[in-house]
Computed example of a mutant assay.
Amino acid sequence: MTVTTWDEPAGATARGTLIVLPGRGETGASYQRFGTRLAADAYRVRLVPVDLDDLAAAREQVEKLLADESLPAPKVLVGTDSGATLAATIVGEVDADAAVLAGLALPGAAPAPGATWDDELDARSACPVHRSVIEGDAGFERAALGRPLPWSSLEVTAPAKPVLVVHGAADAVSPAAEAVAPYVGAPGARTWLVQGGRHDVLNDVSHRSVAATIVLFLESLKLGPELPAVLVPASGAVDGPA
């Protein structure tokens, strides 16, 4: 299994490790922009391929990375589509500090296998750059969103670890209300909808805002698992030098 890597700039001190679990059809090429951006903020990024027919292999690789003492904490699972579903099911069982779930895939919610490639592109992303990336990726599996998930149902309870959920409000693959419902109001969960966002929410037109939201979550996580705020509204007196 080949793990794709992005590292912090030379001379920077790594601030944590992100273990990316991609979704159906995707390769490392789909996350070059995301990996480069988060690495520039001094987070090490490791992308683990996810074969829906061999989830045990993906989990084994995740556990190896979590046990690798050369990779700095906090260590956070970042899943998209079926990778987000996998992250949601294992985050409480492995030695990860938190999870980011972007565009959760829901059992039974995939589009019909007969959908055209243009339909799939529209469902995935409105970002012209990302669409050109996956159209030019020879390893990208077209029509993969029609593949059934290996889970018959997804039972999610209040997370025991910090979780950030980011979902497209216009996601036609996984309806937003159903996808985020288990997390809304749950202790330790931060849930955001991206206005107009489609399924590949890490690679949609609002990818900059989504990445910034993830960085804020990570920086808060570094302060503690209670996710203390890094930025607060200014009101009244502001603390500072006397």
Rank of each mutant, 00 (worst) to 15 (best):
L21S: 08
G23S: 07
R24F: 05
T27L: 13
G28Q: 03
G28D: 01
G28E: 05
A29N: 08
Y31Q: 03
Y31A: 04
Y31D: 02
Q32E: 08
R33N: 00
F34K: 01
G35E: 00
G35D: 00
T36W: 10
T36C: 06
L38M: 15
L38P: 02
A40F: 12
A40K: 09
A42S: 15
Y43A: 02
Y43G: 07
V45T: 04
R46D: 00
V50F: 09
D51M: 08
D51T: 10
L52H: 07
D53L: 13
D54E: 06
L55I: 05
L55D: 00
A56I: 09
A58E: 01
R59H: 00
E60R: 14
V62D: 03
E63T: 13
K64C: 08
L65E: 05
L66F: 11
D68I: 09
E69Y: 02
E69H: 11
L71N: 00
A73Q: 13
P74V: 06
V76P: 11
V76E: 00
L77Q: 09
T80N: 14
D81L: 07
G83K: 10
G83E: 00
G83S: 06
A84M: 12
A84N: 05
A84K: 07
T85N: 11
L86A: 10
A88D: 11
V91H: 14
G92I: 05
V94Y: 05
A96Q: 07
A96S: 07
D97T: 08
D97E: 13
A99F: 04
A99W: 05
V100M: 14
V100R: 07
L101G: 07
L101V: 15
L101F: 14
A102W: 08
G103P: 06
L104Y: 03
A105V: 04
L106M: 14
L106Y: 03
L106G: 04
G108Y: 07
G108R: 05
A109P: 08
A110G: 12
P111V: 10
P111G: 04
G114N: 13
G114W: 10
T116H: 09
W117R: 15
W117P: 11
W117I: 13
W117N: 12
D118Q: 15
D118R: 15
D118A: 15
D118C: 09
D119M: 05
L121E: 01
D122A: 15
R124V: 15
R124Y: 12
S125Y: 07
S125Q: 02
A126W: 00
C127T: 11
P128K: 02
P128Y: 10
H130M: 10
V133H: 02
I134K: 03
I134A: 03
